[in-house]
């Protein structure tokens, strides 16, 4: 005898879940946007990102009290709390500012998540080797060169940039232990933190004329490339 069990969700909970995974973009304002509307920026906060942040907060809160070395703030701020995260993030943001297609928001966030996951897997082999800092520094140098050269960023390139950024950050992620829950927390925290940082950088308002802003961005990109190259050389020296 076959018994089918149907879970009856309360209507308000069902409505909330369906909205969280809908195509609607949460702009944070009372007016909701559709993806085909001109959002004016690549990265937007969706409900799914907010739910991820809620996951990080809740799992951190309800874990057994232990002396945490890596707290909630560190998990979310990992991408912006060290040179190995900041340099690729800054140079990627300089590149992504040139791509303002709002329809890329979700694929870009997904590419970032995939890159983070691959990077986290690679971390197992990279930990303790000089290659671990070399991966983000090389990616930052490549991004810096592209930004300083003023290259255009087509849609596919934007997704690749997001994936590579995720890879570079994932390869240097810290987690309390190698247990699944800690890894998931680190991954989710870094994803939310990176998206937030990217969003701020990509949607920063134009300061001054567009031409001078472009010049300033290329100068910052060249400086970032120089810093990444010098750090790469120092890493190479430590290998010798």
């Amino acid at each position: 005898m076959c018994v089918s069990v149907q879970v009856m969700w309360p209507p308000h909970l069902r409505a909330r879940c369906s909205r969280a995974f809908s195509e609607e973009v949460d702009t944070g304002s009372w007016q909701k946007m559709r993806p085909n509307q001109n959002a004016g920026a690549l990265i937007r906060f969706h409900r799914i990102e907010k739910l991820t942040l809620a996951f990080v907060i809740l799992t951190s809160t309800f874990q057994t009290a232990t002396a945490h070395q890596i707290g909630l703030a560190e998990q979310v701020l990992q991408p912006v709390s060290g040179a190995l995260g900041l340099l690729p993030l800054l140079t990627a943001a300089l590149l992504l500012r040139r791509q303002t297609d709002p329809s890329l928001t979700r694929p870009a966030a997904l590419a970032l998540a995939v890159g983070l996951a691959i990077g986290l897997c690679l971390r197992t082999w990279l930990t303790g080797t000089p290659l671990q800092p070399a991966v983000p520094l090389s990616i930052a140098a490549a991004f810096g060169l592209a930004a300083a050269a003023g290259l255009a960023v087509p849609s596919l390139a934007a997704l690749i940039i997001c994936a590579l950024l995720g890879l570079s950050l994932g390869a240097n992620l810290h987690s309390e232990t190698n247990e699944l829950i800690d890894l998931a927390q680190s991954l989710a925290g870094a994803w939310v933190g990176t998206l937030a940082a990217l969003q701020i950088a990509v949607t920063l308002p134009q300061a001054g004329s567009r031409q001078w802003q472009a010049i300033g961005e290329r100068i910052i990109a060249s400086w970032s490339l120089a810093i990444a190259t010098i750090m790469l050389a120092m890493t190479a020296r430590s290998m010798m």
């Binding site: 702009t27 703030a73 979310v76 933190g193 701020i200 949607t203």
Partner: peptide
């Protein structure tokens, strides 16, 4: 009704986390 932009949300999030970091 005041409009809360995503950038504002992100800035508040990061500021709060920065302030609450461990000693």
């Amino acid at each position: 009704m005041p409009t809360r932009t995503p950038a504002f949300f992100s800035a508040v999030l990061i500021s709060a986390l920065l302030i609450s970091s461990s000693a």
